[in-house]
Amino acid sequence: MIPSTGQNPALRFAPSPNGPLHLGHALSALLNADMATALGGRLLLRMEDIDVTRCTPEFEQAIYEDLAWLGLDWERPVRRQSEHFDDYRAALDALIARGLAYPAFMTRGEVKARVANAEGDGKPWPRDPDGAALYPQDERSLSDSERQRRIDAGSRHAWRLDMGRAIEACGEPLSWTERGDGETGEIAADPAAWGDVVLWRSDAPSSYHLSVTVDDARQGITHVVRGLDLFHATSVHRLLQELLGLPAPVYRHHRLILGADGRKLSKSEGDAGLSVLRRQGLTSADVRRLVGL
């Protein structure tokens, strides 16, 4: 059980409407709903639809139908990230003003080539907890005039957090309260393991790290319940919370539902889709049994 924070408890289920929900989503949604009920709190719904090319109204409507079939109810209105880009931009601008974010001009191909060259010479390249290569730090030292020259010239760029400066700005070690299915207690945050994370993408507004941090604060979320695959990312979110003066929720990272290949379910696995199970005649009680609740 997740303890109360002393605030009016609020939990959220935050899917991306870019495909059908599956059993992994069902577990997360049901845990959020069950804990909101146990705490006498609120259940909110958020559509993480920053990727406006892949997210569609049809998928969003399907999510509502799946959640209603599971017997869930949630507060209205639903928060859609695509309606709040100004909130994320304001947060980014606050970090830029403090010298904690910088424009990053290297393409994915350039980064990949840099990593391959280094590793080809036998030099290990640092990687984040998900196994992705960290972004090179070259552009941290570019002058403001050079950065502006490139931007004025139309160079495509993202905005990245200067992790070194950001950690220094916090001034003290960070941690979060964890009540999940893995480690529990007060967990030491290690944002440096992620390097200079993207805050604002070159091909889409904002990023997951920035938007989820801002959204949780805007919605008054006191308890974040989500999959263990996001456990380590909490270090970045705690750092952004401190830098932006936002409250820190209590976290519960729950076990994952795995597919036949032993990997986390994806939206491409149709046999685990909730709409498929519904058409097969299963009930919400059946789904609870399938996800081990």
Rank of each mutant, 00 (worst) to 15 (best):
R149I: 05
A260Y: 04
I167L: 03
P191R: 09
F59E: 00
L44D: 04
E183N: 07
E269L: 09
L21I: 05
T184N: 12
Q81W: 10
R150I: 02
K123W: 05
A169F: 01
P247E: 12
V212N: 01
S82L: 10
L274K: 03
S82E: 09
D190F: 11
R150M: 03
A158G: 07
E110L: 04
Q280K: 15
R238Y: 05
A188Q: 12
G220D: 02
T213C: 07
D216K: 02
V52A: 11
W159I: 03
L244Y: 03
W194Y: 14
A101Y: 04
S82F: 11
I50V: 13
V214E: 03
R263P: 12
D87V: 07
R98C: 11
D286C: 13
T234Q: 07
G182K: 08
L67G: 05
G109H: 15
D144I: 11
Y64P: 12
D138G: 10
L21Y: 02
A116F: 13
S275C: 08
Q137G: 14
G40M: 00
D66W: 03
R114N: 12
G259Q: 05
P136S: 12
D190G: 08
W74L: 00
A68R: 15
A29C: 07
R46C: 11
D49M: 07
F231H: 09
T283M: 07
L228A: 14
S4A: 13
E269N: 08
L244S: 11
L95T: 08
Q7T: 07
W176P: 08
A10Q: 01
D87G: 09
Y102T: 09
G227V: 04
V225M: 03
L239T: 09
V276K: 08
A260L: 06
R156D: 07
E119M: 06
A233C: 10
D181T: 07
L258W: 11
V224E: 02
H25N: 14
L72V: 06
D196T: 10
E178F: 00
A26P: 10
P126G: 08
H237L: 09
A169G: 04
L243Q: 08
T234H: 10
W74S: 04
L290Q: 15
S143G: 13
V291W: 11
A97P: 14
A118T: 01
G120Q: 11
L282S: 10
A62W: 02
A133I: 13
Q219H: 04
Q219W: 05
D144R: 14
S141Q: 14
F85W: 12
P126V: 12
I221Y: 03
V111C: 13
L31D: 01
D34S: 10
G273K: 01
V287Y: 01
A62F: 05
D86C: 11
P20A: 05
N8S: 13
Q81P: 12
I151H: 07
R150D: 04
P17A: 03
F59V: 08
P57D: 09
S141K: 09
R160P: 06
L199F: 06
S202H: 14
L43G: 02
R76Y: 13
I187T: 06
G220E: 00
E119F: 02
